[in-house]
Design a protein around this nucleic acid. Structure first.
Lengths: 351, 351
DNA sequence: GTGAAAGCGCTAACAT
DNA sequence: ATGTTAGCGCTTTCAC
């Protein structure tokens, strides 16, 4: 298994190493016959240029660092898959770094600030140690992380989370409109009395989704009632508790439909509905958000909103490469929003 | 943002670049005072050795390629997390490559052979193009892939899947004993009449798990009956169908417990049980395998077997690094088996 | 259009 | 114990 270098190719083809380099990189015109000879030898020998040597010379590694808050978090694998999809069709590679923040941040996703040092240390290692050309930061929760990621003079693209830092840009999903559309879907099906199970009420996505819901309600001339809102914490059990509260509330009429701000809480709510021997969707409609695996596992299958995580990853990678080339439609963009899609399944009835 | 090199450090400290290299890599004794001077300058300047230059010189990149059949497959994220855990405490990094084989291999996991070219192309790129020092191949199904992965003269460790190729080694989970233990758990709880819902019956894990079940049955003097076996296909819907078959079979007494060979089919089986208005576990006990998310989502919570995927990844990374160093407890091992754990939850009753 | 050669930042053989 | 220097495999300037 001889290691074969550009010198070998040059000798074999009877040209200089410079010429070989020119044909490989198409960086200069080369006489057709020489070019063919070089190409022939390369094909015959299965020559692969040594990227390490190339990197040393060009000061570019063609590696994109992917720094993920936790690879086990729900959006991570799909986002990385999307990044990989794009990167595969380029000359770049992915260096993966897992921050493993799921345990320390469990349901305290807004407290990333405490992890600032850890994040920047990893970032600094990727950029100065591993010499990656750019980094994609994959958040596990869709909140603003401005001020967390330091400027390292290389492109930094944040996926799923957002940031207004001028040295970073971000790609995330359409949230408010998605929540509004979900609500409109309920309204279109005749629902006026709509219960809401929120996520942790001080978090951005909970507030944004509530904004979307209220927008749709307002359009339809429905006045939101506090009696129909219950604050959950994103976890399944809170969906159960909130739904129970909604069902047992004597002071207000029972809602004909309820929006849970994620699928986990929707599943919990469905348990509470089943416990009261009510039928879904005949007696009460329910919708979730996120289109997690569980939304197809529950019975009946949950109507929800799909966040196109793969597209977020793909788009983040595309943006990164375009920043790197300084060209492309997005080279100057600061932020990209990926549309979310309503997935109508079986938990909404028309009344 | 000046780029600072070993030369700068040498000048600043009044020594040669060789000496700086010696103190950084502890590759030779250096006089204490010189050493301190060098260390001081390094600390003061925040100098980070250029790994690219080092790699070119030493022909080692300190990068481990992680080639994953599909990052969206159920074991992938956790295995990568485990790899990352180990690698973090070493000097190595992870270059990630996703083969995206989920679609093409959906429920035809034994047909990897058709992907042989694609796999070896990726492998060849990692080793000859990206110049990784070793690769960890992360399977998405626990079958033997001997003959698929070519010899590339670098360590190749297969995680989750297995191979008997002499140039590769593998780390996977304890399957037969785990299935036997699961069965013993049922027997200990008084069950004798045990139904079985298999995975695709020609696949290795289905056969191995059946072997484990039969072993435990034999120990207890229970003769297995074909009437109690139904062949599923690993998917949830087949669990439902198989369970229905078991429940509606007039020629044999209804089983008091059933083993589904994975959690998905167990969930489907639970639907069929609920549909017949039977109670779990009072009327019929059920157990699954894999400890997927869904096993905590179903009601009641499913008793199942946890495959320690994180440990598989961790161990695969450890093995890889030990192969690379030619030292460590596992440097010569061909295969490692990670124990699986019974997770007793709420779906088994004592009779 | 092409080749000679310098040099990217490091390590290690060799000399002292 | 430490310094000098060749060279890892490539790109690119400069000269022709």
């Amino acid at each position: 298994m001889e290691i074969i270098t550009i010198k070998d190719i040059a000798n074999e083809a009877g040209v200089s190493t410079a010429t070989v380099s020119y044909v490989i990189n198409r960086t200069r015109q080369v006489k057709p016959d020489k070019e063919r000879r070089v190409l022939d030898v390369i094909a015959r020998t299965n020559y692969q240029p040594n990227r390490v040597a190339k990197s040393l010379r060009t000061r570019k590694t063609n590696i994109i660092g992917v720094l993920v808050e936790d690879i086990l978090a729900f959006p991570s694998a799909q986002i990385i898959g999307g990044i990989s999809d794009f990167v595969e069709q380029t000359d770049y590679n992915i260096l993966l770094n897992d921050l493993r923040m799921l345990d320390s941040l469990y349901n305290k996703y807004d407290q990333v600030i405490h992890q600032k040092d850890k994040i920047n240390q990893a970032l600094s290692f990727l950029i100065f140690g591993a010499k990656v050309d750019a980094v994609i930061y994959v958040g596990m929760f869709d909140r603003d992380i401005s001020g967390i990621v330091a400027n390292m003079n290389k492109p930094i693209v944040i996926a799923y989370s957002t940031s207004s830092d001028p040295h970073a840009c971000s790609v995330t999903y359409e949230n408010e409109d998605a929540a509004a559309n979900l609500t409109r879907h309920l309204i279109k099906n005749g629902h006026k009395n709509i219960g809401i199970i929120t996520g942790l009420s001080h978090t951005t996505p909970a507030q944004v989704r509530l904004g979307g819901i209220n927008k749709a309600l307002a359009e339809a001339g429905i006045t939101p009632s506090d009696a129909l809102i219950r604050n959950g914490d994103w976890q399944r059990s809170s969906g159960y508790t909130c739904m129970k509260g909604l069902l047992e509330n004597e002071t207000a009429p029972r809602p004909t439909a309820v929006i849970a701000m994620n699928d986990l809480m929707a599943a919990g709510a469905m348990d509470a509905i089943a416990e009261k021997k009510l039928r879904i969707p005949e007696d009460i409609s329910i919708v979730g958000f996120d289109n997690r695996d569980i939304s197809e596992y529950v019975f009946p299958k949950l109507t929800t909103v799909e966040i196109d995580l793969r597209a977020i990853g793909f788009s983040a990678a595309k943006l990164t490469v375009e920043k790197l080339c300084g060209a492309g439609e997005n080279a100057n963009k600061q932020s990209i929003i990926i549309p979310s899609n309503l997935i109508a399944r079986e938990t909404v009835a028309t009344i």
